[in-house]
Design a binder for these strands. Structure first.
Lengths: 343, 343
DNA sequence: TTGTACGCGTTATCAC
DNA sequence: GTGATAACGCGTACAA
């Protein structure tokens, strides 16, 4: 039987023989209530099975007790990216213990991104939002600021931002990859990058160029949309070039897996003829043959840290920049010594 | 400038020179308001940029205007499964136009599933929930019923359920796979199934047994947890058996991909020595080598249908059973003629 | 500690 | 049929 009429704070007050206001004080652990009175009130509340009404609380304090995450990628790309599920689990690690809800919205091409944020803010559905996949001159920073809700950005935007940022140094991961390939004797190394419009993709690309130049590599970069299809196309283009690379550094695992597919289809051996590295440490990357050498980031920890930062921002803390631990390199079977030119 | 004080219904009433109550009637398209008065009220509302306060509305009508989705798998398994991102996009296709929000909760082992539903209901955060991955004797059906919120189940539970169900006939997909393999001359065919505790996994398994028996196959089934790791282990076990199968039917694409990895590692050719089929039509399955033959379901359409069904249930419609279009078979390169025994 | 106004939209009751 | 008035949902905040 669902209890149709939930007990209200007035019921508790009546049962404890005090006023509504005092009940509120007692339940919120605020001073000014005699210890025995407080005990009586708490007992009455527990007795009646009272739980606060979220909507009443929202109405009076003007907070939603919820945070929003708007995902602006197409479902295909999300599916191929293990980041979001783990990241969301990390957010929930934190939100679930603080009584916040996570409101998830999807902004596909048909559904305007700006409209989605606007709707969330107009309804005061959320107290703050998490901005992922920060882009160059990202309009969301100003939009969200304008909408008057708190926010945290994943990575530091290239526009002035009043929000706390939480960043992982992707560049460090890329440098580990480059060093690994250099040690294996590779010289012609290509990079299959994500969309240049996304700052983290751009940063990976930038880190690659710097590190590869320092290592004396002969490089080439192809930009993609992070999808497996894009990875396959980029790989085909690179292998078709007059001087194909001996190693390809992919900006995520899905593309690396697709890259191995293309190489195999052409009869190339991995890593005998071509070494391949990924980024993200997807589960699937461990189980294909050869298992891919990849950069592992702590998406779940990133989520938990982001949630804490957002709650702090909502509480009024000053914005700040938070740096996460550097990613690590997991060496598996998809990388090996560079083929000798003689072959 | 965020407008600190939003216009309320009282402001609109004042501007239009009418009472609060009448404004509410006009804004909700209810009879009893003179046409010109209504026009004046709507104009005043538009003029002031009034938008309804969700929390006030929630408080007075007792609805949250939100629906919940509790995901009870571990992040790893979610990441490996393209179903959820697409399904969620489908939910949003519907929710976003009806002004509902989607509240996402993750129930990992540490965070009790029942507690998650209870919290959602206690806070009246949601008006209804979507129950995915229905299990044998699933306790959530009774729990959610007890909590007094609406729900829709994905698939028909094996316990009495007062909720609308939305089902796709996975069995039909499996039958297509079996027919395909039979036509290719396979006789020793194994099935790598999902957890027997999940009804849809069980149904796939059941459909496999029936169809495989009818086709005269010599079968064997291994149960897994749907993860790539599980798929790899199951494949290894099957290939180690005295009479290894010539084809393996996997219950999802991630496991199939892992299966190909294991086969390749052992020097087997796919499909020359072993044919492999998946389920879900993941993007990655199209880009590995060989591309996998798989069963395609319309997860996004499933999501949209589920959202509509849930909204109808919340509105008070009678529960019913909804059947989706049958899945289809996408034949690619991972299946081929059965190897001749002579080899 | 108490009483009460407040946040904001909905709806039942009434008067014209 | 038009419209106004007031109570309601429920917790918070502040004056008394």
């Amino acid at each position: 039987m669902p209890q149709q009429t939930r007990p209200t704070i007035a019921d508790v007050a009546r049962a404890a023989g005090v006023s509504k206001g005092l009940v509120s004080f007692a339940l919120n652990d605020r001073p000014g209530v005699a210890p025995d009175t407080r005990a009586r009130i708490l007992a009455a509340a527990a007795d009646l099975g009272w739980t606060p009404s979220l909507s009443a609380r929202s109405l009076s304090v003007g907070r939603a007790f919820a945070c929003g995450l708007v995902i602006g990628r197409s479902p295909d790309v999300i599916a191929a990216d293990p980041f979001f599920p783990s990241f969301i689990a990390g957010l929930e690690d934190e939100f679930s213990v603080t009584g916040q809800a996570l409101v998830l919205a999807v902004a596909t091409p048909g559904r305007q991104e700006a409209e989605t944020y606007r709707a969330l803010a107009a309804d005061r559905r959320v107290d703050g939002v998490i901005l992922t996949d920060i882009r160059a001159s990202d309009p969301r920073v100003e939009l969200v600021q304008h909408l008057g809700i708190s926010a945290v950005t994943l990575g530091v935007p290239d526009v002035a931002s009043p929000f706390t940022s939480v960043s992982a140094d992707d560049g460090a991961g890329i440098r580990l990859v480059v060093a690994h390939l250099a040690a294996l004797g590779h010289r012609r190394v290509a990079h299959v990058a994500g969309p240049e419009g996304m700052l983290h993709a751009r940063r990976r690309h930038h880190a690659f160029r710097i590190a590869a130049d320092a290592a004396g590599f002969n490089t080439r970069t192809v930009e993609t949309d992070f999808s497996a299809a894009g990875g396959a196309r980029a790989t085909a283009a690179l292998l078709d070039s007059p001087e194909p690379p001996t190693a390809i550094v992919y900006s995520n695992d899905s593309m690396a897996v697709a890259g191995i597919g293309v190489a195999h289809q052409r009869g190339l051996r991995v890593p005998g003829d071509l070494s391949i590295t990924g980024f993200d440490d997807t589960e699937i990357g461990r189980y294909i043959h050869p298992a891919i050498t990849t950069v592992a980031t702590d998406a779940r920890g990133w989520g938990a840290t982001t949630a804490r930062a957002l709650l702090a921002a909502i509480a009024g803390d000053e914005p700040r920049h938070i740096d996460l631990a550097d990613p690590t390199l997991t060496v598996r079977a998809s990388t090996g010594p560079a083929p000798t030119p003689a072959a």
